[in-house]
Computed example of a mutant assay.
Amino acid sequence: MRTRHLANIYRLGVKELWSLWRDPVLLLLIVYVFTVSIYTAATAMPETLHNAPIAIVDEDGSPLSQRIGSAFYPPQFTHPAMIELAQMDQGMDAGNYTFVLNIPPNFQRDVLAGRAPELQLNVDATRMSQAFTGNNYVQQIVSSEVNEFVRRERGATAMPVDLALRARFNPTLDKTWFGGLMRIINNVTMLSIILTGAALIREREHGTVEHLLVMPVTPTEIMLAKVWSMGLVVLVTAFASLNLIVRGLLGVPIEGSLLLFVTGAALCLFATTSLGIYLATLARNMPQFGMLMVLVLVPLQLLSGAMTPRESMPELVQNLMLAAPTTHFVELSQAILYRGAGLDVVWKPFLALAVIGGALFTFALTRFRKTISQMA
């Protein structure tokens, strides 16, 4: 009896794979999600300050003001455009500059006299990512140049404490490492929900569900077949993307065990594919399924810790997201891939994923049986 059940699950899963193979749109989506999407996410992190356009209104014309102007250079900023005061508003309105630094007359004289002259920094805050990061950069650069000019020497005053800064796991602070791996984690969740939901809705729209009802198969076998087949597709493509795109093309080093990561990804897929089937039983067609998926997928990705640290979120949100599989998947993935953690470190998120996956599978199976009974 057990052998027959396993054979049914296997054959139904193979049927799902053949159905997916004959769907060029979903195949194109899979290829895009684990190639172009990974590369663009890694190389175009929005918070990176890169070639921010800046202009300087130098009304002082002193060595100090020229020194400040020469301190801005690529790759953080473009070479400063030296403009007149009357050109400042026009350039900002046209969007030519994100930052305009206005150095007033007699600036150097007031600095050397011990006064506190004011500089005006105009920021185009509609460019939010550049404005937020670049504002601090400009302040630090100006303060550093003024202090060094006053001391008449390069170098800093000796501090009573020697701070040795070591950046671990990403010593060059390269945002590519974070962007590529986190996009793979997010895409695993997204694609697993899409594929399993689309597989069930496709059968309903094509009328093949009625064919399954007259066959000697159970709802559990039908659902397990969709879970293992679609989960396998996502797992294989994610593993290939991790090696070919992230490690190969982007050159991101992987510290931990890939086998341990794949095991954790399989547990997460067990939960997310079950969630995809549950959403598909609630929707009547693909447009409805797409709207439901947006309502579920956006919180799963934004609040899981893949975009921002969970510690920066309200405590209520942190506690609620413990029920989401993506929270634990992000935790174990970062620990394994970034820090080389072993099972003794990540066993808790592994256990949480197993529990959440079992609960989601039970809920989805109950709803799936009810849906099939209504169609019978």
Results as ranks from 00 to 15, higher is better:
L6Y: 14
L12Q: 09
L12F: 11
G13K: 00
L17V: 12
Y32D: 02
V33P: 05
I38T: 11
T43P: 10
A44H: 15
N51C: 11
A52E: 05
I54T: 02
V57M: 07
V57Y: 04
S62G: 11
S65R: 00
I68E: 08
F72V: 06
F72S: 04
F72W: 04
Y73V: 14
P74R: 05
P74K: 04
P80A: 07
P80Q: 02
I83H: 07
I83G: 09
L85D: 09
Q87W: 11
G95H: 01
N96R: 14
N102Q: 13
N102P: 02
N102L: 13
L121E: 06
N122V: 11
T126I: 09
N135S: 12
V138F: 02
Q139L: 14
Q140D: 12
S143C: 04
E145I: 03
V146G: 07
V150L: 15
E153K: 12
A156H: 14
T157N: 14
T157D: 14
A164K: 15
F169V: 10
T176E: 07
I184W: 00
N187D: 09
N187L: 04
L191T: 14
T196K: 05
I201M: 00
R202H: 14
G207K: 01
G207V: 02
L212F: 14
V217H: 13
V217I: 14
W228H: 08
L232H: 06
V233C: 08
V233P: 04
V234Q: 00
L235G: 02
L244Q: 05
I245Q: 08
V246Q: 04
V246S: 04
L260M: 01
A265V: 11
L269K: 05
T272F: 07
A280E: 03
T281H: 02
A283S: 10
L292G: 00
Q301K: 05
A306E: 00
R310N: 09
R310K: 13
Q318C: 03
T327L: 05
V330M: 07
S333A: 08
A335Q: 06
I336Y: 09
V345C: 10
V345W: 06
V346Y: 07
F350S: 04
L351M: 08
L353M: 14
V355S: 07
G357V: 01
F361R: 05
F363G: 13
F368S: 00
K370C: 13
I372C: 13
